[in-house]
């Protein structure tokens, strides 16, 4: 007759003021680092923030945060543990160090399950790290989360930005709010991404230079803020 889980999701998120999914049509552009830095920056500014890793098949945010030996508490639902000041949820609590080889319908089902049983506190922001692509995760967020907004990441490469433009047009057609675009891993002064973004009527949020120091900051949230990503995203968080 009916899957009972979906109807409870809006209620589970009703005490969350803004839900921001960091997303990109393209992979490897810096979504996980930017999502984590954004969540940390907002928390640093005194906001109550959750971080939800929706990249079930290749989660990364637990590595960036250096989250070890934490598990949700089971009460009348799952209560996310605090990691670096964030209410933090990820499938790795349950899949551990092994692969979670999931097909599309299965990732949707896992997402519905987690959204239905996770009890977030009152939050100012829930930041979501998305898997790459314009597929299951994006469509599920649009379908299931009433207050969803997207922050889109691209690189200067046309191979990234051409896909991202399609993603932006799709979100505009669906009337889903887009916070803006972040251009990551910049190595030149070229301003074409900025110009084209603004021509689409979308905010160009910031550009982040390529910074080889990022690798060394993985697993150390404080160190992240001494890299270009951390610094730029911290600035950006002030304008949210």
């Amino acid at each position: 007759m009916a899957d009972p889980r979906t109807s409870i999701i809006p209620e589970r998120l009703s005490r969350v003021r803004r839900v921001v999914a960091v997303s990109s049509g393209k992979g490897g552009v810096g979504k996980s680092l930017i999502a984590t830095s954004l969540a940390l920056s907002l928390a640093e500014r005194g906001c109550r923030v959750g971080l939800f890793d929706l990249d079930f098949t290749s989660p990364s945010t637990h590595l960036i945060l250096g989250a070890n030996d934490v598990q949700p508490t089971e009460d009348k639902g799952l209560i996310p543990p605090k990691v670096a000041g964030l209410e933090y949820m990820s499938l790795v609590y349950y899949s551990g160090n092994e692969a979670a080889p999931l097909r599309g319908a299965e990732t949707s089902n896992a997402l519905i399950e987690l959204l239905a049983v996770t009890l977030w506190n009152e939050l100012d922001y829930l930041v979501i790290d998305s898997p790459p692509g314009i597929g299951d995760a994006l469509l599920d967020l649009v379908r299931l989360v009433p207050q969803i907004e997207f922050l889109i990441v691209t690189t200067p490469s046309r191979l990234a930005f051409e896909t991202v433009k399609k993603q932006l047009r799709l979100l505009q057609e669906l009337k889903i709010p887009v916070v803006g675009i972040v251009e990551n891993m910049k190595m030149t002064q070229a301003s074409s991404v900025k110009q084209q973004t603004e021509a689409l009527g979308i905010r160009f949020l910031t550009e982040i230079p390529y910074d080889p120091a990022v690798e060394d900051a993985i697993g150390n949230p404080q160190k992240l803020f001494s890299t270009a990503i951390g610094r730029k995203v911290r600035e950006l968080s002030k304008t949210m």
């Binding site: 007759m1 889980r5 409870i8 009348k76 639902g77 799952l78 049983v117």
Partner: peptide, 18 residues
């Protein structure tokens, strides 16, 4: 114990259908 969360979902959906 997280059965509670599932029970809430069942009740909510049942109310909607009713």
């Amino acid at each position: 114990m997280h059965e509670w969360a599932l029970a809430e979902a069942v009740i909510k959906t049942s109310i909607e259908i009713a």
